[in-house]
Nucleic acid binder design. Sequence first.
RNA 1: GCGGGCGUAGCCGAAUUGGUACAGGCGCACGGCUUAGGACCGUGUGGCGCAAGCCAUGGGGGUUCGAGUCCCUUCGCCCGCACCA
Length: 819
Amino acid sequence: MARTVAPVYDPQAIEPKWRDAWKKAGLFRVVEDSSKPKFYNLVMFPYPSGPLHMGHFRNYVIGDAIARYKVMRGFNVLNPFGWDAFGLPAENAAIVSGIPPRVSIEGNIAISKHELDIMGVLYGWEREVTTCNADYYKWTQWLFLKFLEMGLAYKQKAAVNWCPKDNTVLANEQIVNGVCWRCGTKPTKKELEQWFFRITAYAQRLLDDLSKLDRWPERVRVMQANWIGRSEGADLEFAVDGDRSLRVFTTRPDTVFGATFMVIAPEHELVQKIPTKDRRRDVDAYVEQTKAETEIERLSTEHEKTGVFTGAYAINPFTNERIPIWVADYVLATYGTGAIMAVPAHDARDFEFAKKYQLPIRPVISPTPTPGATPLEAAFESYDGFLVNSGPYSGLNVKDGMAKIITEAAARGIGTRTVIYRLRDWLISRQRYWGVPIPVVYCPDHGMVPVPTNQLPVPLPDHVEFRSDGQNPLAHTPEFVDTTCPRCGKPARRDTDTMDTFVDSSWYFLRYADPHNQTLPFDKAKVDYWMPVDQYIGGIEHAILHLLYSRFFMKALYDAKMVSVDEPFAALFSQGMIQRNGAVMSKSKGNGVTPDQLVERYGADTARVYELFIGPPELDAEWNDRGVDGVARFLNRVWRLVVGEEDEAIAEANRVSAEDLTRKLHETINRVTRDVDAFRFNTAVSALMELTNLMQDYLQGGGRRDQAWEAAALGMTRMLGPFAPHLAEELWRRQGGEGLLVFQPWPELDEALLHRPQVTIVIQVDGRLRDRVEMPAGAVQADAQQRALQSANVQRALDGRRVARAVYVPDRLINLVTE
RNA sequence: GCGGGCGUAGCCGAAUUGGUACAGGCGCACGGCUUAGGACCGUGUGGCGCAAGCCAUGGGGGUUCGAGUCCCUUCGCCCGCACCA
C-alpha cells in the first residue's frame, strides 16, 4: 500500500488558520462590479434560537458550497447572512425567565455565529442584517407607511383567528391543519380591528407569475397555486321574499335550472332577517350551536352536514320556482358571498345535504343530450355533458350552456361572470411586544395619523413589564403609548400592535444589497445590480408563507418603482430534513448531533462532506454515524495520497496507465461540475471518491508521482474546495500553490481527454447479454458485427440460427436479432 | 376525495434519460499491520447454480431489437390541500 512518512491528517491543526486566512482575504466581501457576472446566493435567514445541530446545517453547508463554487467559477458572489430576530419564542422565554428578548437574542446570535464559523461556513458579515435592530425595523416601518400611501395597508374590523395560547391574532396562512402553526392550539374567532396588507390585489399576478419560476420545485408552485385558489364562475342574484335579494357565487352557472334550494352560512347577514316567525327559534338555536363548533370540526369532511330551514324562499330566476332557503354549516361565510345555490344533482355536498333533508334532486346535466331515466345515486359533477331539463338551453354542451346562461343573466341584470380567489388579505397586526411597532398614532381630533417618515423609527422600548395575563406589555407602557399627534401636537396614543414577523422577512434580501443605507430602505441601483436572488435555499415549510409574502412585497415595490424586477427568487431549492433514530433531529428529542462534537472528533470538513454525501439533498435523510466514518476515511485517503512521499507498488495490483488516470480526472471534472450545477452533491462526492480510488490504484500499480498524477492531485484539490475547504487549502499550499485556493479557478474540462481509444462493445443476441469485446473507438457496424460473430459465446447463443438484422449503437453495443 | 412524489442489494443510494442494472458509501467476510483493538490498510461482496446459464428494479400486462426508464393496470408508502360552492 501507499505508506507515508508525512504528517497525519490533523483537521484541528489546520482548520482555524484557513478560516482566519479567508476572513483576512475578505472572501465574500463584495461590491457591485459590472466587469463580472453577479451571483446572489442566499440561504433563508434563521430565527436565532441558540445552538444549531446538523439538521439545521444542511442548507448552510449546501449554500456555502455553492457560494465557494461560484467564486471559483468567476462570479461576483453576494453571500450574506442575518437574523430573523423578532418573534414569539424570545418573548415567551422572557415572560418565564425575565431576561429581556434583546439580551437573549444577542446571546443566541453569538452562539449560532460560533457554530457557523467552526464549520467553515462563511458569509459577507459586513452586510449582516438583524430584524430587531432599529436600523432595520426603521425601514420596515417606512415600507409599512409606503404601503399605507399606496392603499395596500388598511385597518378593518374583521372576524379574525385568535390563538388563545399565544394571545394574538393569526393570518390565514398561519392556521395549519386548523391549528396555530406555532403552538398547535385551536384558534377561536374574535371580532377585532386589525391591520391588513392587500395581497389579494396581487392574486392574479402572483398566480400568473408562478409560470416564470421554472427553477422552483414543482410542488412549491402547486402549493402556491392551490393557496391562491382561483375559481371562475358567475355571481347570480336570487330574489327573496320581502324585497330582498341573495347573491351567490357559483362555478357552475350552467346548472342553475337544477338549483332546488339555497343555503346561507350561519354568519350570513340574512340569517337575522329572513326567518319566518315559526322558524326563528330553530334558526337561532342552530346558529348558536354552530358557534360552539370549532373551525376544524366544521371544516372537516368527516363532519356530517347539518342545517335548518329558514321558512323563507328565493325565486330561481331561470325556472321562476320558489325554492327554500336553508342555513347550514357547510357553507362558509368567508368564501364567495357566504351563500350558495344548491344543485344537489351536480354537487356532492349539496347531494348529501338534499338526501339527508329530503330536498328535491333534479338532474340538469347528462352525459348524453337526453336525460337519463334512473334517479342519480351520486352527484354527477363532470363538465363533460349536456344540459337537460334546462328550458331553452337543453341540448347544449356544458361550455356553451354556461356561456349563454351567463349572457342572459347579464342581460337581465341579475348576474355577471366572476373570478374569485381563496387567498385573503394578509392580517399583519399582532398583539405582542417583540416585533416592529406599527407606526401610526391615534389623535382625538385627527383619528389615525401615520408617523411621518422623518420621525422614524418608532422605537420599541427594550424594557417593558411582562404580564402574566398575556396582554401586550406595550399597551401598558406609558412611555411608549403616550405621544403627540404629528399633525396637531396634542396628546395622542400610539398603536400598540406590532407587525407579523413575516413582514420583516419579506424584504430582508433587498436590504442585503444596501445594508447601511441611512436615507432609504435600499438604493435602487444597488438592488437592481444584485436582484433577483440567483439561488435561494431553505426549508419547504416556507413554501407558502414566506415565499408568497416576499413575492407580494416584490411586486408592490415594483409598482412603487423602487425595484426593477417583480419576482425576488429566480431559483429555489428546498432541502430535505435530517433524521436520526427515525425522527427529525431536534433539541427536544435529544437526537441531535452538534457541529462541536463533529468538529472535535473529525474536523469540519468531514462533517461538511458527510452532509453533502448523505443522500439526494432534496430528500429527507437518515443520519448514520458510521457513514461519517466513511467520509473521514475518504478525506484521510486524499491526504495521504497528496501529502505522502513514499509509495510501494503492490505486485498483484492492477496497472493504471497515465492516460487512464488523466481521462478519469477529466471525467470527474465533467461529472462534478454537472452535479454541482444540478444540486447533486451526493453524486459529486461519489465521483471524487472514485477518482481518489483510481489515484491510489495508479500508485499501487507502479505509477510515479509524475505529471499525470500531479494534474490529478491538483484537480482533486480544486474540486474539494467548495466541499472540504480547509483540507483543500492545506493541500493546495503543500503542493506549492500560491495564494488561496478559494480564489483559484475551477478546473477546466478538456473534452478531448474524455475520448477513449478503446471501448467495450456489449454484444447481445436477441437483446440478451452474451459477450463483450474491446474495440477501437468509432468502429463501424460491419467490424463490430464481425467481431461479435467470432465470439464463442455468441455462436453458442445463436445455436445455428441466422442473424436477421443487427442493431448497432456505436461504441456501446451491438444486438444481433435472429429470425 | 383532489393534487404532487416515491417504490432498485442486508442499509443509504447510482444509472450518461430507451442501450453492460446496482457507481460511491455503510454493513459483512477474508487477509495485512498490531501486545491488543469496534483503529488503520488491502481484497471480495445481488440471488440460485459445479458450470453453461438462469433469475432479479413492489405485483401483473403491453410497446420495443432492447424497459429501472415509455404506456396500461394493481398494491404499498410519503407529502400537500381538503365541505372553497
